[in-house]
Each structure stands twice: as C-alpha cells, then as structure tokens.
Amino acid sequence: MKKQSAKFYTAATAAAFLLAIFSTSLSAQVVVNPKVGANFSGVESQLGDITAEARVGWNAGVDFRIGEKALFFQPGLHFYNYTARLVDQVARPDDISFQEETTIQSLKAPVNIGLRLTGDNGLLGIHVKGGVMPSYIIGVNEKPGYGFDKSDLNTFTWGANVGVGVDVLFLTLDANYEIGLDDFFAQAAGANNMLTISMGLKF
C-alpha cells in the first residue's frame, strides 16, 4: 500500500509539473500528431500454475509537439491493447499444456523532450526524443478457467523511453522503445520492455 501511495504522489507531482509547463507553452507553436500503431512486448512470468507472456498488440493516441526551435516538449496520451498468452502448466497424464490468449488494456502518457535534426516544415523532417512513460492498467479480458485478472498486474508503472520520428509532409512514422522501470506483474519479477511502431498525421 505504501508503495502504491508513493507512486500516486509521484504521479500527482509530475502531473502538476507538466501542467505548469504546458500552461506556459500555450503561446508557442503546437503540432498535433494523432497516430495508430503496433507494439511488441517481451515480458514473461510464472504466476502459480500459469505462465503469462505479453506479446503483440495495437495502440492509438495523440502527441503534441510544443515549441518551434530545435528542442521541443512532447507530451501525449495513448491507449494500448496487447495480447497475453496464458499457458496452464498443471501436470497431466498426457503431458499436454492448455493455453489461451487474453488482452490487457492500459493508458500511457509519454512525456518527452525532442530534438529536431532537420526542419519541421519541409518535405522531410527527422527528430529524436526521450523521456518517461507512466502507464496505468485499465483492465484485463478474463478467461474462464484461468486465474488471471487485473489484480495480477501492477496498476501503475513507470518506464523510460527513447525514439526517433520521421515526417514526410503531413505524414509521420515513429519508432519508440520503452524500458520498464517497475515489475509488470504484481507478484513476479519482470519489467515490460516494449517496442512501438506508429504512423500518423500532423497538423
């Protein structure tokens, strides 16, 4: 409980800090960048008699590039839906393991600082970015016969991320790699490192 409270206060402090930055940036140039993509996870843990493996999923959301100089501020909000494979390891006479797939839904609010390597308004624009990625688990699609639900996951986690983006006119392509800083599962070790590839528009 103390750990969750500490994370809540940390998140509240970070949110207040970001709100202050955002409010002072309203007069700056803002680029809106809605996007959709695919994500690939690499976390696996043993939960009692069940092995849970998070793998591939999809995501949709929006980023905001604030500032017109080489450095810019880029907050965002994204919905992530990714697949988890559940394998029942209970020993059986025929040595057969049963498996099922479920989905996990979360909200991610990346907070990045970006650096433009080329101009932002020409035919081609390239930038790099890095920052933090707070994540909040919304829910789990529970499967009958498998004791796996939202309580098996840490509701709030932090990640560090780096990425690169390419703009071609009004189209965008982004690759982002998130390094999990907390355990993904509540009762098992293992961070969720995730690669996300997204395409979008900017205006």
Rank of each mutant, 00 (worst) to 15 (best):
S151D: 14
G147V: 08
D149F: 05
D152F: 02
N192I: 07
K143E: 07
S151G: 12
D149W: 02
V164N: 09
T157D: 02
P144A: 09
N192Y: 09
G165V: 02
N176C: 06
D167W: 04
G165Q: 03
T196Y: 05
P144R: 11
A175H: 03
A191G: 15
T157Q: 06
D174W: 02
N176W: 01
M194T: 15
N154Y: 09
L169Y: 04
D183V: 09
T172K: 01
D149L: 00
G190R: 06
L169S: 05
N141R: 14
G190W: 05
T155N: 13
W158C: 05
N193A: 04
D152Y: 02
L153A: 12
V164F: 02
G163P: 03
A188F: 11
M194F: 11
A175M: 02
G147D: 14
L169E: 02
I197L: 15
K143I: 14
T196C: 09
L171T: 02
N176R: 08
G147S: 13
D174Y: 01
L195I: 12
D167E: 09
N154V: 08
G159T: 13
G190V: 07
G159Q: 07
D149Y: 00
G145E: 03
N161R: 06
I179V: 15
L195W: 09
P144G: 06
P144I: 07
A175K: 03
F170W: 06
F184I: 07
L173A: 07
Y177N: 13
N193S: 08
T155M: 09
L195A: 14
F185R: 12
A186I: 07
N161H: 10
G147Y: 03
T157S: 06
F184L: 13
T196E: 07
N192V: 09
T196Q: 12
L171D: 00
Q187M: 00
N154P: 08
K150F: 06
E178M: 13
M194W: 04
L169M: 09
I197Y: 01
G163A: 08
D182G: 12
G190C: 10
G180N: 05
F184T: 11
V164A: 15
E142A: 05
N141H: 12
L173I: 05
N161T: 13
G190Q: 04
L153W: 01
D152P: 01
A191D: 14
V162N: 06
L153Q: 07
I197A: 08
D149S: 14
G190D: 10
A175P: 00
E142C: 03
G159S: 14
G180I: 08
A191Y: 11
L173H: 01
W158L: 13
F156P: 00
T172D: 00
S198P: 00
A186N: 13
N161P: 00
V164Q: 10
L153F: 07
A186H: 11
G159V: 08
F184W: 10
Y177V: 14
A189K: 15
G145L: 04
V164G: 15
G190Y: 02
T196P: 00
A175I: 03
I197K: 11
N176P: 01
F185G: 08
L181T: 10
N176M: 05
I197C: 04
F170L: 11
F170T: 11
V164Y: 03
D183P: 15
A175Q: 02
N193L: 02
L195Q: 15
D174K: 04
S151W: 01
M194S: 12
G163Q: 05
G145V: 04
D182F: 12
A191F: 12
Q187W: 00
T155I: 10
N154T: 15
T196H: 08
N192L: 08
W158Q: 06
F185D: 05
